Simulated scan of single mutants.
Amino acid sequence: MTNTTKYNYLFLDRDGVINIERPNDYVKNRDEFIFTDGALDAITILSKKFEYIFIITNQRGVGKQVMSLVNLADVHNYMLTEIKKAGGNISEIYFCTDTDSTSINRKPNIGMGFKAQFEFPQVDFRHSIMVGNSKSDIEFGNKLGMYTVLVGDKYDKKDKIYKSVNAYYENLYKFAQNL
């Protein structure tokens, strides 16, 4: 990153960034939650560099009744426990279970960002980074004026998404290494 702006706040998508995404499916329970390569190490590194780290995740599977809020809480508790054991820290998790794409809280809409800012008033989106693996993550970050980082291999290298991001890395660990 050659930008001279000081970034204090990190927003991370979950599926495809922290854990392996299940194509055409949902992480419905703890057994299906598998960290991406280097994610635990990455969050440990990032926890030393950012004042706050937020997870911002759409969880439509709950709204579709494919899984319950209890299942989601169990997955998140497992994830947070493993992150803490590795030396990392997550300030808060925000999730949207709505199935309607017009919901203010469903990415790419920005409701979850404002929830974070309401609970942590010092958050300034101009001093925030959004890391995601999908167009909705990047659009969310761009709408709020964040520095946006795409990770993963979801899109062909010629896809126009690469023109709407500030940076691209193979995964969260590569991003953390390059800060």
Results as ranks from 00 to 15, higher is better:
T99N: 14
D100K: 06
D100G: 08
D100I: 13
D100N: 15
D100V: 14
S101A: 14
T102G: 01
T102L: 06
S103Q: 00
S103W: 04
S103P: 03
I104W: 04
I104T: 01
I104K: 06
N105R: 11
N105Y: 15
N105M: 14
R106W: 11
R106V: 13
R106K: 15
K107M: 06
K107F: 03
K107G: 05
K107W: 01
K107H: 09
N109E: 12
I110W: 03
G111F: 10
G111W: 12
G111A: 04
G111S: 14
M112S: 10
M112G: 02
G113N: 15
G113P: 13
G113D: 13
G113I: 12
G113Q: 14
F114T: 02
F114L: 04
K115M: 09
A116R: 05
A116S: 00
A116P: 07
A116K: 11
A116F: 10
Q117T: 05
F118A: 02
F118G: 01
E119Y: 01
E119V: 00
E119W: 01
F120Q: 03
F120K: 07
P121H: 07
P121G: 10
P121D: 10
P121M: 02
P121W: 09
P121F: 01
Q122D: 08
Q122H: 07
V123G: 01
V123E: 03
D124Y: 08
F125G: 04
R126T: 15
R126W: 00
R126E: 15
R126L: 14
R126A: 14
H127F: 03
H127V: 00
H127E: 11
S128E: 13
S128Y: 07
S128R: 13
S128H: 12
S128W: 02
I129M: 03
I129G: 03
M130R: 01
M130H: 05
M130Q: 06
M130P: 08
V131K: 14
G132R: 09
G132V: 11
N133S: 13
N133R: 02
N133T: 00
S134N: 04
S134V: 03
K135G: 09
K135N: 04
K135Q: 13
S136W: 02
S136A: 09
D137M: 11
D137Y: 02
I138C: 02
E139V: 08
E139F: 07
F140M: 09
F140Y: 11
G141F: 08
G141T: 15
G141N: 07
N142M: 11
K143V: 11
L144Q: 13
G145I: 10
G145N: 07
G145M: 04
G145Q: 11
G145E: 11
G145H: 10
G145F: 04
M146F: 02
M146T: 09
Y147S: 00
Y147I: 04
Y147N: 04
T148F: 12
T148S: 12
T148Q: 11
T148M: 04
V149G: 10
V149M: 04
V149T: 08
L150Y: 07
L150F: 07
V151Q: 12
V151S: 07
G152V: 04
G152N: 12
G152E: 09
G152F: 07
G152S: 00
D153S: 15
K154R: 13
K154T: 08
K154S: 13
Y155H: 13
Y155A: 00
Y155T: 02
D156M: 03
D156C: 04
D156G: 01
K157H: 01
K157N: 01
K158V: 05
D159R: 02
D159L: 13
D159Y: 12
D159F: 05
D159K: 06
